[in-house]
């Protein structure tokens, strides 16, 4: 259970990224976070595991207030929070296995990680996770030899290797094609359901969010302006989140893309015949 209370973040430049945001994510819930760029989605997610330092407010994970921890204790708490980034956040020049095992770094002493001598159960877990995301035979490849979708699967395996109590997911599909995006979102939701993991997914693609999320929170200018089930998210709510013009433009873009896809499908069908 994650409870955020009156979280605020003001950057040193004076930009107010978040203003008194309060939200709670219960066990097993997948929450989508939508909003225009610059609304503070990314800041909110990074304030939870303190890659960005919040200015005020509380971040309660169970009984611990993450916003008020010293460096050592923060490291121990970060192990409980798995984070999944855009595809490029794998360490490119390490092997797939090392990338997955790096999820265990918070649990092993430095000499073990330096010599790559992880515990047998860590290695077994890493193989099991790689099998779960369908990449067990790629373990010895270097991460930069993988495709975008494969990298994202490794990223998921790395986050799960931490045995987390919470998943933070930052734009998981930003640089993937539509089909791979859906596969990745399906995998994510399945895994969360299997383990009863709560997750916050920062996502820019509204139809994708509506399809896969159990709950949607809309951010605008650092404040929560929408918080409900995805089927309630309608025209008017989207206008509040994105502003009238942007929303129209976005929908138009979506329509164009859908049209193009349909067109391509038609041509393929013709070709197939």
């Amino acid at each position: 259970m994650l409870r955020i209370e009156k979280l605020s973040k003001t950057y040193r430049t004076g930009d107010k990224a978040l203003t008194e945001v309060s939200v709670a994510v219960p066990e097993g819930q997948i929450m989508g976070l939508i909003g225009p760029s610059g609304a503070g989605k990314s800041t909110l997610i990074r304030c939870i595991n303190r890659l960005v330092e919040p200015t005020a407010g509380k971040v309660m994970l169970g009984e611990v207030d993450l916003a008020r921890l010293g460096t050592g204790e923060l490291r121990r708490q970060r192990r409980r929070i798995g984070m999944i980034f855009q595809e490029y956040s794998l360490v490119e020049r390490l092997t797939v296995m090392e990338n997955v095992l790096s999820g265990r770094l918070g649990y092993v002493p430095f000499w073990r990680s330096w010599l790559r001598r992880f515990l047998p159960e860590d290695i077994e877990r890493a193989y099991r996770l790689l099998d779960r995301v369908g990449l067990v035979d790629q373990a010895d490849k270097r991460a930069d030899a993988l495709s975008g979708g494969q990298r994202q699967r490794v990223g998921i395996a790395r986050a799960l290797a931490q045995e987390p109590d919470l998943l933070l997911v930052d734009e998981p599909t930003a640089s993937l094609d539509p089909k791979t995006s859906r596969q990745i979102m399906r995998l994510l939701t399945e895994i969360c359901a299997e383990r009863g993991l709560p997750a916050i997914v920062n996502i820019h693609d509204v139809p994708l969010a509506q399809q896969f999320m159990q709950r949607i929170v809309g951010l605008r200018d650092g404040r929560i302006v929408f918080d409900d089930r995805p089927d309630v998210l309608g025209e008017s709510a989207l206008t509040t989140i994105y502003g009238a013009e942007d929303w129209q433009a976005m929908r138009q873009g979506d329509d164009e893309q859908a049209e193009a896809e349909a067109d391509a499908a038609r041509r393929m069908a013709v070709l197939a015949r």
Binding site: T95, R116, I123, Y127, D131, A139
Partner: peptide
């Protein structure tokens, strides 16, 4: 039963 996974792994040589 779950399939058995290896419990040892060594970094393959790169160069």
């Amino acid at each position: 039963s779950q399939p058995a996974y290896p419990t040892a792994w060594r970094r393959p040589p790169q160069i």
